[in-house]
């Protein structure tokens, strides 16, 4: 579905961010892209929608070549690729609804978007998506009034309203607390499954990645050094990706391999931040 061939990116500073990367993503596959800072994870997904211009190599989405597209056809291609950002990248002074609807900009003309005259179907879809990600009460709030988790949900809705064929997700949880991170990851994975969406998720947190995805790609200095299931990601392989460290507790132990992924119900029920639970308070008192 997404095919990357010999993708190379050398920045004008001379840094080689990607070194001949080959990668194939099949329909509905959710991939975690892991690797140390500076390994080229962000560059890789930004090359896919050409926010970063590749130096060399080719990329196809469903047999249509992305590399080499020019202005109008590139914009049409970008409509088919949704993107979710680490710092949410919402327009702070616009409302939640405007932020979500901005995902439709590629489909309507300038003056319609300027006067906020979006088609009725887009608005209905926006309401549906906001309900799906659990922030339907926030429609009229300005984006800067939201918490981190809520903002990321807006970011997810904005990407999904594009009706994308693939999602590029850049560190979706790096600015969130552990609980919200799990909720957001679960939400992303569920949404991908619901609509058979493929996704590439850049992620720092290896454990979190292993909980949710079916395939992990390890990147080191712009090269793919691991491509396989999270189950086989042992200490030796993590060392190959990140370098020497104590991987106990991160790498999968043999007996852990059978453990199921957490079910949706476990993680997704508290969609909106719950008030502090008794358990949490007890723990604080106890410590």
């Amino acid at each position: 579905m997404l095919t990357i061939e010999q993708l190379t990116k050398r920045y004008s500073t001379g840094d080689l961010a990607l070194d001949s990367v080959d990668l194939q993503v099949t329909k509905g596959q959710v991939i975690a892209l892991i690797g140390p800072s500076g390994a080229g994870k962000s560059t890789l997904i930004r090359c896919v929608n050409r926010l970063v211009e590749p130096t060399h190599g080719r990329i196809w989405l469903n047999n249509e070549q992305i590399t080499g597209l020019r202005s109008r056809s590139l914009r049409r291609m970008r409509c088919r690729i949704g993107m979710i950002f680490q710092e949410y990248a919402l327009v702070e002074r616009l409302t939640v609804m405007e932020n979500v609807l901005s995902g439709r900009l590629g489909y309507i003309g300038f003056w319609r978007s300027f006067f906020r005259r979006f088609p009725e179907t887009d608005i209905e879809r926006a309401f549906d998506l906001l309900e799906r990600v659990g922030i339907e009460d926030m429609v009229d709030k300005r984006a800067d009034a939201l918490s981190g988790g809520q903002r990321q949900r807006v970011g997810i809705a904005r990407a999904l309203i594009q009706n994308p064929e693939i999602l590029l997700i850049d560190e979706p949880t790096a600015s969130l607390d552990p609980k919200t991170s799990r909720q957001i990851m679960q939400l992303i994975v569920d949404l991908c499954r619901e609509s058979g969406l493929a996704a590439i998720i850049n992620i720092h947190d290896v454990q979190l990645a292993m909980m949710f995805v079916e395939r992990v790609i390890g990147l080191r200095q712009g090269r793919v050094v691991y491509d396989g299931s999270p189950a086989q990601l042992n200490a030796a392989r993590l060392t190959e990706i990140y370098g020497e460290a104590d991987w106990t507790g991160t790498a999968r132990e043999e007996q852990d391999e059978q453990r199921d992924l957490p079910t949706s119900a476990e993680v997704i029920v508290p969609l909106i931040e719950l008030p502090e639970t008794g358990v949490g308070r007890q723990r604080v008192v106890g410590s």
Binding site: R75, R76, V91, E92, R93, L105, Q162
Partner: peptide, 26 residues
């Protein structure tokens, strides 16, 4: 960041100005 995000949706240059930049400088 928001400018990049608006570009990533397939918006035209003028739409990027009016959605990504204008609200920030208003």
């Amino acid at each position: 960041e928001p400018v990049e995000a608006i570009e990533a949706t397939g918006a035209s240059r003028m739409q990027v100005l009016s959605y990504g930049i204008w609200p920030q400088v208003l």
